[in-house]
Simulated assay, not measured.
Amino acid sequence: MKVDLSNTGATVDAHDLGPLLGLDPSEVPAKMRSGEITSRSEQGIDEDAGRVRLTFWYADQRVRLICDSDGTVLKTTRIKAAT
């Protein structure tokens, strides 16, 4: 999986994100617009410099993607988050 990283932010294809959140990809854009899916992007520092951590929350799911500087996903985690 690859994430599009630009100066304006990160973009994850709904076809990649949807299944990670237990959703059909067609549901992702509307749920992001309504605030049902929220996200956070963090830039790595020190030994993680050049990496990006993207976290997405939906219902009781938390999905975290760790990407290198070109957007290649190095690690994906999915856990049941506290509600």
Rank of each mutant, 00 (worst) to 15 (best):
A10V: 09
P19G: 08
V12K: 01
R33I: 08
T38I: 06
K2G: 02
A59G: 08
V12N: 02
T38H: 06
G18L: 09
T77R: 09
A10C: 05
E42N: 01
T77L: 04
D24E: 15
G22W: 14
R33H: 06
D46H: 01
A81F: 03
K2H: 11
L21I: 10
K80D: 08
T76D: 03
G71W: 02
D16N: 10
F56A: 02
G35A: 08
A82F: 04
Q43T: 10
L21H: 08
S41V: 11
D60I: 02
V73I: 15
A59K: 15
D13H: 04
A81S: 12
Y58N: 10
G22P: 13
G50P: 04
T83W: 01
T76L: 13
W57I: 03
L21N: 13
I66R: 09
T38Q: 14
S26D: 14
A59P: 01
R62G: 00
A10D: 10
I45Y: 00
L74F: 00
A10Q: 03
S34E: 13
M32I: 15
H15E: 13
A59W: 01
T11Q: 14
G44T: 07
A59V: 03
D46V: 04
L20Q: 13
M1S: 12
M32V: 15
G22Y: 14
W57C: 02
T76E: 09
R64F: 00
E36P: 00
M32W: 01
E36Y: 01
A49Y: 03
K80V: 11
S34Q: 12
R40Q: 10
D68Y: 04
V63L: 12
A49G: 01
G44D: 03
V52W: 07
A49F: 12
K80M: 05
E27Y: 01
A82K: 09
I37N: 02
V63P: 02
A82R: 07
T8V: 07
H15D: 13
R64D: 04
W57L: 13
